[in-house]
C-alpha cells in the first residue's frame, strides 16, 4: 500500500484547480470579445457605456453565483465520497469563495486597466470613446468593490446550493436568504438589473463604510449558516 503525506486543504486545492482554470478561460474569451466589440463601437462612434458596463457587472456575478452552487452540488458530493468530513467543508469552501472572487475581481480590474491602454491607442487613431473617463487611481477601489460584491454572490451560491443539496424544500427556503446576502452588493453597485427588487435599495444611499459593515455581518452569519446547514446533511443518491 502506498502511504502518502496527507496534504493540507485538499478540497480547496480541488476547487481551485477546477474553478480557476475555468474562470481564466472564460475571462480570456470575454475580454477578447469586449475589446473587439468596444473597438468596433468606438470606431463607429456609438455609445459604448451601458452595454459593456452592464455585462461586466452582471456576468461575473452570476458566474460566481453558479460556481458557488457547483462547489456544493458537485464538490461536496465528491468530498464526502472520498471519506472527507462535512466539518472540513465549510472552511475550505469559504476560503475558496474568497480566493476565487478575488481572482475574478483582479481579472475584471485588469480588464479595466486594459481599457486605459486602449484609450491611449484610440488617441493615436484619433478615435474618441464616449464612455466616461476613468481615473487609473480608482483601480484599487474598483478591485475592492468587485471583490466584495463577487464574494457575496458566491457565498449566496454556496448557501442556496447547500439548501438544494439538503432537499428541494430547503433549497426553496434558501433563495430569499441568498437574496439578503447579495443585497449590499446590489446597493453598492446600483441595482443593475436585479429582478424583483425595485430601485428603493439604491435610494438608501449607504456609504462605503456602512456597506462594508453590513457585508461583514452578513458574511459571518452566512458562514454560521453554512456550518450549521452542512453539519448533518445526508448525501442522497442521485436517483432520490
Amino acid at each position: 500500500m502506498t502511504t502518502r503525506v496527507a496534504k493540507r486543504w485538499p478540497l480547496l486545492r480541488v476547487l481551485l484547480s477546477a474553478h480557476l482554470t475555468f474562470l481564466a478561460l472564460l475571462w480570456a474569451m470575454f475580454t477578447l470579445l469586449v475589446l473587439v466589440v468596444t473597438s468596433i463601437l468606438v470606431w463607429t462612434n456609438a455609445d459604448t457605456d451601458n452595454i459593456m458596463h452592464l455585462l461586466s457587472v452582471q456576468a461575473p456575478r452570476w458566474l460566481l453565483f453558479g460556481l458557488g452552487l457547483d462547489a456544493v452540488s458537485t464538490y461536496l458530493r465528491i468530498h464526502l465520497s472520498h471519506g472527507r468530513t462535512r466539518r472540513e467543508f465549510t472552511g475550505q469552501a469559504l476560503a475558496h469563495a474568497g480566493i476565487l472572487s478575488g481572482a475574478a475581481a483582479f481579472l475584471i480590474t485588469a480588464g479595466y486597466a486594459m481599457e486605459f491602454g486602449l484609450r491611449s491607442l484610440y488617441a493615436v487613431f484619433d478615435w474618441r470613446s464616449r464612455a466616461p473617463e476613468l481615473d487609473p487611481a480608482t483601480l484599487p477601489q474598483v478591485f475592492g468593490t468587485f471583490w466584495l460584491s463577487l464574494l457575496m454572490w458566491m457565498v449566496a451560491g454556496l448557501v442556496i446550493g447547500l439548501g438544494f443539496f439538503r432537499s428541494p424544500a430547503h433549497g426553496i427556503f434558501s433563495i430569499p436568504v441568498g437574496i439578503v446576502i447579495v443585497l449590499p452588493s446590489v446597493i453598492s453597485n446600483r441595482n443593475a438589473g436585479m429582478p424583483f427588487l425595485g430601485d428603493w435599495v439604491v435610494d438608501l444611499d449607504l456609504g462605503p463604510g456602512e456597506i462594508l459593515a453590513i457585508s461583514a455581518v452578513i458574511l459571518v452569519a452566512s458562514a454560521g449558516l453554512l456550518r450549521r446547514g452542512v453539519r448533518g446533511v445526508p448525501m442522497r443518491t442521485s436517483a432520490e
Binding site: R13, A18, T74, R77, G83
Partner: peptide, 29 residues
Amino acid sequence: RGSGDATQNSLKVADVLEFAAILRTSWDS
C-alpha cells in the same frame, strides 16, 4: 453507489481520478 458519487458528469475522467488522488488519503495512483 452505482457508478459512484465521485464520478460527476461534468468532469473529465482524468479530473475525477486526480481529485480522488488529492482527497482520498490512501489513494494508489
